[in-house]
Amino acid sequence: MFTGIVQGVARIAEIRDVPGLRTFRIAFPAGFAAGLEIGASVAVDGVCLTVTTLHGGDAASFDVMQQTLNITTLGQYQTGQEVNVERAARDGAEIGGHPLSGHVDFAASVAAVRELENNYVLRIAVPQQWLPYLFAKGYVAINGASLTIAEVNVAESWFEVWLIPETLRMTVFRQKQAGAALNIEIERSTQVIVDTVRRQLADTLAPLLPALEQVLQQQGGADALRILTGKLR
């Protein structure tokens, strides 16, 4: 588990590919890898990776399977790229952000960037199917950083986060411009609640749909009902 509080910016020192697998050697900031062991977990831009080799005191290698490369942004990275890193939380650690699994749900893209006085606003375009899990004032993890959602626009499929100077200092977000890809992990308790409510509504409304469609058909509204309830079937 991770806390969503990025502990530093690391650099991809080397990338090696073999069939179905990519190995990243990552150089960490000073002191980050103290006590790090083979088998330990590190979140790299929000993706939970396992240490496979240690290189002195400030670097380690990680093997990444093809499925992870397909789902996340790691498949696009090049040598020299900087990434957010966080070590796995210890028992009893303070959760400064919100609990993260390091299992990225999808990759999104930066739709626009606004720079205001002491604030940096990222507008992020997301696929429609993920919007039900995103709420203003709710949590989301972006490249491993726990952030609060400022606004969600369902019609245009985007949400915004506002970043303070300290967040920019400790992360790679200032490097992200329109079109940049980002790893998104939705907040798990929100997902559970939304999915549970959806299932309950489906079970409750499904037997009533034929009668509702008949009533609305008489009033010319059956098409609207089918659109609204299409996901219940």
Rank of each mutant, 00 (worst) to 15 (best):
P19K: 03
P165Y: 07
R22C: 04
A10Y: 04
E160G: 02
L74Y: 03
L74E: 03
T171E: 00
N84C: 05
V215T: 11
I164P: 03
V44N: 09
Q81T: 08
N70Y: 07
R87K: 07
L201R: 09
L201K: 09
R233D: 02
T229E: 04
S109G: 08
T171A: 01
N183M: 02
E117Q: 14
N153M: 10
W162M: 07
Q217T: 12
A206C: 12
V121G: 02
E185G: 05
G75E: 12
L168N: 06
P207H: 06
I149A: 11
I12S: 07
A211I: 10
P127Y: 13
Q78Y: 10
V194C: 12
P29E: 01
A27C: 03
E185L: 08
G138F: 14
R16F: 07
G138D: 10
Q7F: 08
K231A: 12
V215F: 07
T50F: 10
D195T: 13
T3V: 12
T204G: 05
N183T: 03
P207M: 05
Q219F: 15
D203H: 11
T53C: 13
I193H: 07
G102N: 05
W130F: 15
A224I: 12
A136T: 14
I184W: 02
L116Y: 08
P29W: 00
V152H: 11
L36Y: 01
S41A: 15
T171L: 01
D203I: 10
E14K: 10
N183V: 04
G144V: 05
T167W: 07
A222R: 10
N153F: 10
D91P: 13
R174K: 11
Q66D: 14
T72G: 12
A145M: 02
G46E: 12
G102C: 13
V121I: 15
L182R: 04
V161G: 08
E94C: 04
I193R: 08
P19L: 06
T148W: 11
E151C: 06
E187Y: 07
A107P: 00
G102D: 06
S189P: 00
M1W: 00
R22E: 06
T23C: 05
G4E: 04
R11H: 01
G179R: 05
N84F: 02
Q129S: 06
Q177Y: 05
T68D: 09
A112E: 14
I71F: 11
A88P: 00
Y133M: 07
S41D: 09
V113F: 08
A180V: 06
V110S: 04
V172Q: 14
A30V: 13
Q175H: 08
F135N: 00
